[in-house]
Design a protein around this nucleic acid. Sequence first.
DNA 1: AACCCCGACAACCGCGTATTA
DNA 2: ATAATACGCGGTTGTCGGGGT
Length: 371
Amino acid sequence: MGRSPCCEKVGLKKGPWTPEEDQKLLAYIEEHGHGSWRALPAKAGLQRCGKSCRLRWTNYLRPDIKRGKFTLQEEQSIIQLHALLGNRWSAIATHLSKRTDNEIKNHWNTHLKKRLTKMGIDPVSHKPKNDAILCTKSQSKTVANLSHMAQWESARLEAEARLVKQSRLRCTNSYEKQVQPIVSSTSSYKLSIPVSGAPTRCFDILKAWNNVWGNKHNDVNGGNENEDLESPTSTVSTIGVIESSTSFFEFARGNSSGSCNDGTMGEECDEEWECKTNNQAANSIPGFTGMSSTDNNKEHVPRGYFLETFTDLLLSSSGSSNHHNVQAGGESIIRLEPNEDNNNDYEDNNKNYWNNILNLVNSSLQDPPLF
DNA sequence: AACCCCGACAACCGCGTATTA
DNA sequence: ATAATACGCGGTTGTCGGGGT
């Protein structure tokens, strides 16, 4: 099947938009809505293709866009969501209201990816680069289960992102109907989509997993090792889980030395992050105060320097000297000494990691985007 | 002052997919 | 069922400004 060009290429302007063009596009959409992007440029008097207009609108002119530096929370959200979703920028953007997928993608490529690399973390897999497979059976099982659930949850996140977008479209359509009832007389949305503001039932896998942890936490190793974790379903209760985990943001902001005063990650913060994480990469050099084993045994994420704890979560490692980085089979993960305490450390860290993602996404659902 | 380099970000391109005729 | 069309996404490129030499 051949593909026709999105628009006539001849005579169309390319490159940066001028303020005049912005004004034309803005004025037209405010008055008429965008309608068909293909037809918009002619109607708005723009020598641009519809695609270019759409991009300009969605990435720059849209009124609900937040611009400027990314906050610490936003950066952390991006990293965690990227760990779960990969390069699905659109899906990630739905959980960071007011940020566009393009902006997130750019920020990832220019900042976050480099930082993770400096930290010795593979920005693709979000795993330490020089680590190895767990050697004990229960640890391997845990990793397999986490991976399994991550796949499920990733699929759910994508589905949810689609719903959010459909909801946005619906809202936009309503807006367009208000500003110009004539155009939309033929458009109808037959989908029954949850309206923004109504919390979507989601992340049940995380929650189910959390429940499993809550129930089985103390006998993970002592329990039936042959008992595979069932693929969670969306019918699991969602109550009483979130409270068990402290917001990642809370401890991220808990130490003023870990973030800039305005909450942004400026260059100075970068420097400090790099410094700290180099320590991490150097594997617990003197002065490193990462997640202690004592902290790990707690139900909540420990307070402390953001990057130490965050990279600890990412690395699923402890500040103790009991863990080693081993490499095998191309896969890299932290290997803990095969004793029960460290198994618990490892599992607690994973739990905390997922708790954080759960908190993150739930918080985003409580404040759904309007568009 | 001129040039070069590099980072940041806006914009484009090509492909996949949903929708429509 | 199929083809045509439109839209959205992700990767990539282009442009611009600031800093260094």
